[in-house]
């Protein structure tokens, strides 16, 4: 079955791209039969392995949605774990086709590092996690503290700026992965652990006694986290961008994994019809079929479903939607229209 699909896909791809010198990423992905997706080494809720050893979480969900859109198979993903330091090299060298691992969209990454951010799946900011018993109420009181930070991140740059501009000193304790950070924090090698607030909430949930640790009120930076691809293949970027937008739009329009089959037969909302393929042929415009978004929503869920499943109120991570609510609910999630 898979073989036939691959062969057909490869044939189609070679027909389509017969003239061009260099095959695009989509064609490569289709002939390989899977999406190579870079994720983090593990952050509770955001990326973790389940009992069967499959990657799950808020970030892998983006990879799965893309695989569902292209192949109709959420397992058609080959995951590669990357640290804050290895992720961009992995993407630039072609080891992975896309990154979905709480990576901040910044100017220099988007331009100088030759990456393309395709959207934001979590609006975040950098926070501080500290044992409650230290009784520190503001990050400005952290003079002289030892701070655990992941290297190669925006975190370490923000931290340097924050302490310098506030004229206070600290000892940086550099670490590679979130689990190392947690271990060092628990062992007391550092007083404070700092990273994206979402990551802190996730890490806190995995501590022995989460209530003994508090997030400080300050958020010292903007960290729009989202999936990204290499510069130079806009077609591929489009597919990731619009798969993410499809999940966001689905939530906005009330399309869920439960009702998507029914809605796909046609509704009286033309945007839903275009999204799910019963009207027009948006899929063809990005090199896929009509049912691409329908498959992504059916197999992975809309944005809100994914959020609640992995990191929402009822999970141990317990994150509020906050600014990650739909624009219609006063949040920042605002997908361009499907037209």
């Amino acid at each position: 079955m898979n073989l036939v699909k691959n062969a057909v896909a490869a044939a189609a791809a070679s027909l389509l791209l017969g003239g061009t010198v260099q095959a695009g990423t989509l064609a490569d992905v289709q002939s390989a039969g899977h999406v190579k997706c870079g994720i983090s080494t593990g952050v509770p809720g955001f990326a973790f392995t389940d009992d069967k050893g499959d990657w799950q979480g808020f970030d892998p969900a983006v990879c799965k949605a893309v695989a569902a859109a292209i192949f109709g198979d959420t397992s058609a993903v080959k995951y590669t774990t990357t640290t804050g330091k290895t992720r961009f090299t992995a993407l630039a060298s072609g080891e992975v086709d896309m990154l979905a691992r709480n990576t901040t969209w910044t100017f220099s990454r988007d331009t100088d590092l030759k990456l393309d951010f395709v959207g934001v799946n979590y609006y975040d900011g950098q926070g501080f996690l500290i044992p409650a018993e230290l009784g520190v109420s503001s990050a400005k009181d952290l003079d002289g503290a030892s701070v655990c930070i992941q290297t190669g991140t925006t975190t370490e740059l923000n931290l340097a700026d924050f302490f310098r501009t506030n004229g206070i000193s600290y000892e940086a304790v550099p670490i590679e992965t979130n689990s190392e950070g947690q271990a060092n924090y628990e062992a007391g090698r550092c007083d404070v652990y700092t990273t994206d607030a979402s990551g802190l909430a996730a890490t806190r949930s995995a501590l022995e006694d989460p209530s003994a640790h508090a997030l400080m009120p300050e958020i010292i930076s903007k960290e729009p986290l989202g999936p990204l691809v290499r510069h130079g293949d806009s077609e591929w970027a489009d597919i990731i961008r619009w798969t993410l937008n499809a999940m966001i739009t689905a939530e906005e329009l009330g399309v869920t994994s439960a009702n998507v089959d029914k809605m796909a037969t046609g509704t009286d909302n033309p945007e839903i019809n275009r999204l799910l393929g019963s009207e027009g042929d948006l899929g063809a415009m990005i090199g896929l079929d009509k049912a691409w978004a329908w498959r992504a929503i059916k197999m992975v869920g809309n944005y809100g479903e994914v959020f609640e499943q992995f990191i929402g109120k009822d999970t141990p991570i317990g994150l509020d939607r906050g600014i990650n609510a739909q624009w219609t609910d006063g949040g920042l999630l605002y997908s361009p229209p499907f037209r």
Binding site: K85, F88, L113, P174
Partner: peptide
């Protein structure tokens, strides 16, 4: 273990932050 030698500074953080592998 996060000792800041050549590999960790110029070959690590600098490399990563500037993308000049």
């Amino acid at each position: 273990i996060g000792y800041m030698d050549i590999v960790a500074t110029i070959g690590g953080i600098s490399l990563n932050q500037t993308g000049r592998e």
